[in-house]
């Protein structure tokens, strides 16, 4: 009897969390999503008076939207690629090797996230100005690279550290040289978690706004920067809403990919779970 009562007791804390999450995350998304498909929505109506795709047609007909989408995608691909190229060998070294200053260097990757980001960006922008990198594609690549370092170092380090050393030793034992061990054993074992880090870097770069705006604008305009200018400069709220819905696509695709290919456990392992 007591068990039945316990089993049917309502988890009020859980319900409270669900309500708060719905209000904070789902409700704004719902409102923005509705705005994107609303042609007429006047106060105090709870639902739009007229739905339609007029603003989608108008938004997608704009050349600057497609240009921004191309810029955002090429920036995200380039930043993620460079970040992986630089960070993965470094992460392996942090995970497997002992060298002087290892711990300090490892924690230094947190620094970029330990202080107000905008101040750091302004300081970097001043340096970039001297180097003629302001308003250039590579200037934005460099600034966005800084933002990915944390994910691309810390998560792969955890991934490499969680690979059982005995597995690597067993591979050496059957005749594999160190490079072959890394390629055939370590990387496949750490792969899902590293893929999660790459995914987070890609999505994080795609949505990065402050660096792209400060270093890139007005010559280099990414989707989020364009969305901000739409919201600031256009009195029609639907333009911003349509762009916002378009911006959901990468994270939605990424989440589907993560769920099907990587598995939720990879994220947990990456964060030490």
């Amino acid at each position: 009897m007591a068990r039945t009562l316990a089993a049917t007791r309502i988890d009020w804390v859980g319900v409270a969390f669900a309500v708060v999450l719905t209000i904070v995350i789902v409700f704004p998304l719902l409102v923005v999503g509705t705005w994107a498909f609303a042609e007429v929505w006047r106060f105090p109506a709870l639902i739009p008076q007229q739905f339609g795709l007029r603003f989608w047609n108008q938004t997608l007909a704009r050349a600057d939207v497609w240009e921004a989408l191309r810029t955002s995608l090429s920036l995200s691909v380039m930043v993620t690629f460079l970040s992986a190229l630089i960070c993965l060998p470094a992460a392996y070294a942090f995970a497997r090797l002992k060298f002087p200053g290892r711990d300090i260097l490892f924690f230094s990757f947190l620094v970029g996230h330990a202080f107000p980001k905008f101040g750091l960006l302004v300081a970097i922008a001043a340096i970039f100005l001297q180097l003629n990198l302001i308003g250039t594609f590579w200037g934005v690549v460099l600034i966005q690279l800084v933002g990915t370092l944390l994910f691309m170092i810390w998560i792969p380090v955890a991934a490499f550290q969680s690979v059982d050393r005995r597995m690597e030793e067993a591979a050496r034992d059957v005749g594999a040289k160190p490079l072959r061990v890394f390629w055939s054993i370590t990387l496949p074992q750490a792969g899902p978690t590293i893929a999660a880090a790459v995914l987070l870097s890609f999505v994080g770069t795609f949505y990065e706004t402050e660096g792209a705006w400060l270093i890139g604008a007005p010559a280099v305009r990414t989707m989020p920067v364009l969305m901000i200018s739409f919201i600031n400069n256009q009195m029609v709220i639907q333009y911003g809403a349509v762009l916002s819905v378009i911006l959901w696509v990468p994270s939605f695709v990424a989440l589907l990919f993560a769920r099907r290919v990587i598995g939720g456990g990879a994220f947990a392992r990456g964060f030490g779970g």
């Binding site: 059982d164 597995m167 030793e169 067993a170 050496r172 034992d173 040289k177």
Partner: peptide, 20 residues
């Protein structure tokens, strides 16, 4: 000699099978 060049075969306590 490194392990890969020795005529030995090791069985580990934790099995150390390659799970992938």
């Amino acid at each position: 000699l490194p392990p890969e060049k020795r005529p030995t075969g090791m069985v580990f306590q934790s099995h150390a099978l390659w799970t992938h």
